[in-house]
Amino acid sequence: MRLLGYCLRETWLGIRRNPFLSLATVLTAAIAMFVLSVFLLGAANLANMIEFVERQVQVSIYLKDDVQLGERNDILSRLRDLEGVDEAAFVSKEEALARLRVAFGDNASLLEGIEEFNPLRDSIEVRVLEAAAVDAVVAAVKDNPSIDDISYGRELVARLIVVTRSLRLAVLGLAGLLGLATLVLIQNSVRLSVFARREEVLIMRLVGATDGVIRLPFVFEGIVLSCVGASLAAAAAGAGYVYVWRFAGYNLAFLPILPAASVMQWLVPAVVVAAALIGAIGSLLALRRWLRE
């Protein structure tokens, strides 16, 4: 407990006695975490758009005319139990015709008289959470004798799967690279601070301080400075996002942009926690050399 008090006091003294280095670390962390925040905001919205597009994928399963209610419900419940299925709903041929009439709009008169010989079929419409679930839906029903035909944009879905997978992988890879770059930037900044106090580290070792006691003030310092920088970054990125969100709300209403409030709920803690981790790891890496000698 006494040692913890000592470490906290040394953290504060370390920051106060090296104001320029501390400011440099805060600014480095702020810039690095701002870039990371902007990337995270972009990535979250991209993920949301991918999800939005994937939810548009629909499988229409056309039933034969003589399918009984029990059989139909059986198919419906089997589909709803599948992983990745958002919704499965029965659409009667009368309902399908009504939709067609709405779709025809002013030309609905073309459909007059068709009710008596409705050529449309009863169907089940399945909405999926992601494009990759389509294969499972098709596999689950294709051999069922009650099924007449299955319709979905086979090629479109296949292409969508490739594109969304590639996009997700690219986002993950970029996030990893950016995280690594942030770590290197912050570590370099902390390293300067450690270098300025290398004599102190050497003396601490000589008088019998354990590695833990030597490390803690530097680790705390790295965490505090990185978190201050990250808070500034999150605030700036958040303010910018609110502006973009409002602008898009008025001018690009068709784009499914995530609401600012919900984004900030996870962005601030995520960026600050990431900064704390990066600050701590950066300090440990920066100290390694001086503790090895």
Partner: peptide, 28 residues
């Protein structure tokens, strides 16, 4: 250990320099 170049910390007073050796070992 006593060194030729003293190895005192310039930003600590004499008292703090000496107390430092006890502080890092968790003395009361």
């Amino acid at each position: 250990v006593v060194f030729q170049d003293f190895k005192l910390l310039p930003r600590k007073t004499l008292w703090e320099n000496v107390a430092f050796a006890l502080e890092v070992t968790g003395a009361r």
